[in-house]
């Protein structure tokens, strides 16, 4: 464990003389920085997507576990009787913490997004809704359905599982896709840095030969390249992450009725998560360049 750490600290400690023995790699180094910045920018969005999906999945799962609705559709004359009957049944049903009938005002609010404000609810055959809160153990949905059909034939139990479960599953998958995207971005970055390092090593074959001839160890030569590519990648990733975080911060803030996209930003301590991207990019660059450098050096006498 100590040896890899020592290798890492040796890279970041810097060595001005060692850096000078390898000539500047010009366009290759600049492209490495740019690509790292672009990858980090995309990684910030993938991370934001993943975290937002996680929040959504949790919210939906939690709602799924704790609530249900009963809808009563009955002729106007029977509505009140059936509502009372349903509330009575619910009172005696194990696993139900509370149940209450929504007021006309609450129902109007629920329908406003679809019908607009100023809805004359009294003129429409709107069903009565009963909101149920469960205890931690939950209730026997099938048993409740049978009791309702016997005592309040217009009542229909909706335990939300029909639509909340696939949505929670979709949100979970979206979170997974976000994480896979981050891993793929890291892999693409490693591949890109390996190619760039190989090109730089090939372009400096004569320099490496001279260094070997005057007694340079492979570690010394590799470190000069590793330090250069790690620094370029780190610099690019810092810039890309900064821009990505700024772009996320400038997105519309989360609104309760704003849907999924307005909740894409980071919240609270989660703003620290994207700060992990530059060091991770640096680690990827360190490992990729080191492997490429030692593989090339082994082929030289």
């Amino acid at each position: 464990m100590r040896a890899p750490f020592a290798r890492l600290t040796a890279v970041f400690a810097g060595d001005r003389q060692a850096d000078r023995v390898v000539p500047p790699t010009g366009i290759i180094a600049r492209l490495t920085g740019f690509t790292a910045a672009a990858m980090a920018f995309l990684a910030v969005f993938a991370l934001a997507l993943s975290l937002a999906s996680g929040r959504l999945a949790e919210r939906w799962s939690s709602a799924l576990a704790n609530s249900a609705t009963i809808r009563i559709s009955a002729p106007a004359g029977q509505m009140e009787t059936q509502t009372r009957a349903v509330l009575r049944i619910l009172k005696t049903t194990p696993g139900i913490a509370s149940a209450r009938a929504l007021t006309r005002e609450e129902e109007r609010k629920l329908l406003t997004p679809w019908f607009g404000p100023g809805l004359a609810l009294d003129n429409l055959p709107i069903p009565q809704l009963i909101d149920i809160r469960e205890t931690g153990t939950g209730f026997d949905a099938e048993g409740l359905r049978q009791r309702l059909s016997a005592e309040a034939p217009g009542a229909l139990l909706d335990d939300h599982s029909r639509w909340r479960r696939p949505l929670a599953l979709a949100a979970d998958r979206l979170r997974l896709l976000g994480l896979i995207s981050i891993v793929l971005l890291a892999g693409a970055m490693a591949a890109m840095i390996t190619l760039a390092a190989n090109a730089a090593l090939a372009a400096n074959a004569q320099v490496i030969r001279v260094l070997r001839l005057v007694g340079a160890r492979d570690t010394y030569i590799a470190r000069a390249f590793v330090r250069r590519f790690t620094a370029r990648t780190l610099g690019g990733a810092v810039a890309g992450t900064g821009l990505g975080m700024l772009a996320v911060a400038l997105m519309p803030s989360a609104q309760p009725d704003g849907g999924f996209l307005t909740g894409l930003g980071f919240t609270g301590i989660r703003w620290l998560w994207p700060l992990m991207i530059p060091p991770l990019a640096g680690l990827v660059a360190f490992a990729a360049t080191r492997v490429a450098a030692f593989r090339t050096l082994k082929g030289l006498s």
């Binding site: 023995v21 000539p23 500047p24 001279v210 007694g215 340079a216």
Partner: peptide, 21 residues
């Protein structure tokens, strides 16, 4: 001769010392 063309003469001459730290 085998020099590093991007370095000045003095640094080329000192190269064996440089690479040995």
């Amino acid at each position: 001769c085998q020099f590093l063309d991007h370095l000045p003469l003095a640094e080329n001459v000192a190269l064996p010392l440089t690479v040995s730290g």
